[in-house]
Amino acid sequence: MKKRLEFLKFQNAQRALASGAVVIGGLVASASAHAAYTMPTVITTMFTDMGEAWTQVEDLVWPIVGAVLIGIFVIRKVKQGARQA
């Protein structure tokens, strides 16, 4: 009976080793496939255009955000001054 248990342990170890090898092999194959992939020029051009458009939007939005924050600060200070008077 003991030899049978040792044999079963050996099979489990082999199964674990084989499944680990399959997983590692899959990861290596997946990594090499991703590393070899290059995006088409249409997509890279689109991402470049989107980046430029986002920069233009940021240039338009930040002054407005700053003005709103300054306006909120001024309104609060005026309210505080009115309460104290």
Score class of each variant (00 low, 15 high):
residue 1 M to D: 12
residue 1 M to A: 13
residue 1 M to V: 09
residue 1 M to S: 14
residue 3 K to S: 12
residue 3 K to M: 06
residue 4 R to K: 14
residue 6 E to C: 08
residue 7 F to R: 14
residue 7 F to C: 10
residue 8 L to V: 00
residue 8 L to P: 01
residue 9 K to T: 02
residue 11 Q to V: 09
residue 11 Q to G: 03
residue 13 A to Q: 10
residue 13 A to G: 05
residue 13 A to S: 12
residue 16 A to W: 02
residue 16 A to V: 07
residue 18 A to T: 15
residue 18 A to S: 15
residue 19 S to D: 15
residue 20 G to T: 06
residue 21 A to V: 06
residue 24 I to R: 15
residue 25 G to K: 07
residue 25 G to R: 05
residue 25 G to T: 04
residue 27 L to E: 07
residue 28 V to S: 02
residue 29 A to N: 14
residue 29 A to D: 15
residue 30 S to F: 15
residue 31 A to Q: 13
residue 31 A to H: 13
residue 32 S to K: 14
residue 32 S to A: 15
residue 32 S to V: 15
residue 33 A to E: 12
residue 33 A to T: 09
residue 36 A to G: 03
residue 36 A to D: 02
residue 37 Y to R: 11
residue 39 M to Y: 09
residue 40 P to T: 02
residue 40 P to D: 09
residue 42 V to G: 00
residue 44 T to F: 00
residue 46 M to E: 01
residue 46 M to Q: 00
residue 49 D to N: 10
residue 50 M to T: 01
residue 50 M to W: 02
residue 51 G to V: 02
residue 51 G to W: 00
residue 52 E to T: 11
residue 55 T to M: 04
residue 56 Q to L: 08
residue 57 V to K: 02
residue 58 E to L: 08
residue 58 E to A: 03
residue 59 D to R: 10
residue 59 D to F: 06
residue 62 W to M: 15
residue 63 P to R: 01
residue 63 P to G: 05
residue 64 I to H: 03
residue 65 V to L: 04
residue 65 V to E: 04
residue 66 G to L: 01
residue 69 L to K: 10
residue 70 I to E: 10
residue 71 G to F: 05
residue 72 I to G: 06
residue 72 I to H: 04
residue 73 F to L: 11
residue 75 I to L: 10
residue 75 I to T: 06
residue 75 I to K: 03
residue 78 V to L: 14
residue 79 K to T: 04
residue 80 Q to G: 04
residue 80 Q to V: 05
residue 80 Q to M: 08
residue 80 Q to F: 01
residue 81 G to H: 04
residue 83 R to M: 08
residue 83 R to D: 10
residue 84 Q to N: 06
